[in-house]
């Protein structure tokens, strides 16, 4: 494979949220605690790829995406977008950059302003970024709407007049209107019905090709991520545990967490029913993390080493990264439960 151009690069990125202290904590001089939503993540997003970000709720995938867009401020580390360091840019400096990075949110019912027609919404956006002359705006809006499968009539209507799937198309149109390089799609299909979900996934794939888009696709649905992504990044409690090409990750499942996550998805075959759940308990709180590997309290393979020192994310060949001392190809391993 030829060397791909990096669009986004993060280096040791950290986003911590401080926890509000009670007055007694000040008196007792208890140290300030943090929720470590993103803890030391270094990833690269290449141009024109779809990178799937998966993990359970609360693992920091949305925070990571929002930090890349500078919607959350990073605590430490560095974010580079297209070769420019944007970690400490002011809002004013960021404005021209924002055009290149757009976001599609999960819930199309709350991400569109209910009191603005679709036409006005897109117009405001195009004029704000000075993307076309006022007399061309209408034509441009029609072009964008056609691309996402809507027609001219939509420009005069309000978001409430559309169904969930149509609203998500509009949200995508809004993101595309400014001709961005990077689109972050945060669970864009999880609020939709299966038949509509497939329409939106196909649309995103087509748009990626036509616009040379880079998409960071956040989801908890593994079948969706397998379908749409070129590479997958699996997160657990603020850390990347496995990163690699989609099929490699799905077939080899080097990290035990990836394996359990993939096996947890309910099988469509009623004959494959297991008696016991694959993994018990919940992820630990991101405030009081266990020492060593974060997954060790729930991991079937944990050893003494895992309980004391945290494993590093390392390349195991074929651009496949994993953070585990005991990584192995899990595709043929039978879990003994």
């Amino acid at each position: 494979m030829a060397e791909q151009k990096k669009l986004v690069e993060t280096e040791h990125l950290k986003t911590y949220f401080p926890i509000k202290r009670k007055i007694l904590d000040y008196v007792a001089r208890k140290p300030q605690k943090y929720v470590k939503a993103v803890d030391d993540i270094s990833i690269e997003v290449y141009e024109n790829e779809i990178l799937g970000l998966v993990g359970e709720s609360g693992c920091g995938k949305s925070t990571l995406a929002r930090t890349i867009l500078r919607l959350n401020d990073p605590t430490d580390g560095k974010i580079e977008f297209n070769g420019t360091d944007i970690t400490h840019m002011s809002n004013k400096e960021l404005k021209p950059m924002r055009r290149n990075m757009q976001m599609v949110f999960q819930d199309p019912y709350s991400s569109l302003d209910p009191r603005v027609t679709i036409g006005d919404m897109l117009k405001t956006e195009l004029l704000y970024h000075n993307l076309c002359k006022p007399e061309q705006v209408h034509q441009r809006i029609l072009d964008i709407l056609t691309e996402v499968g809507m027609d001219e009539e939509a420009t005069k209507r309000y978001p409430s007049e559309f169904s969930g799937g149509q609203r998500q198309r509009i949200a995508i149109a809004r993101a595309l209107a400014v001709d961005p390089q990077l689109v972050i799609a945060d669970e864009p299909v999880s609020a939709l019905d299966v038949s509509i979900q497939a329409q939106i996934l196909n649309l995103l794939k087509v748009l990626r090709k036509d616009h040379n888009l880079t998409i960071l696709f956040i989801t908890h649905d593994l079948s969706v991520v397998r379908h749409i992504s070129d590479r997958i990044c699996v997160m657990y409690l603020g850390k990347v545990v496995e990163l690699g090409e989609t099929e490699d990750v799905f077939n080899q499942r080097l990290h035990p967490y990836t394996d359990i996550l993939l096996r947890s998805a309910p099988s469509l075959d009623p004959r494959n029913r297991a008696k016991k759940a694959l993994i018990e308990g919940n992820p630990p709180s991101p405030i009081d993390l266990p020492p060593g590997c974060r997954f060790n309290p729930r991991c079937p393979y944990a050893t003494e080493e895992c309980r004391t020192t945290e494993p590093e994310l390392k390349d195991v060949g074929n651009k496949h990264w994993v953070a585990c001392y005991h990584y192995q190809d899990h595709s043929n391993v039978k879990l003994t439960l």
């Binding site: 149509q166 299966v194 196909n202 079948s223 969706v224 749409i228």
Partner: peptide, 19 residues
């Protein structure tokens, strides 16, 4: 409904048209 579920085999999904 069954065809619309991504199964990792097909390149393009077959959604049910319309709403």
């Amino acid at each position: 409904l069954i065809d619309a579920i991504p199964n990792g085999m097909t390149e393009e999904l077959k959604p049910i048209p319309g709403n």
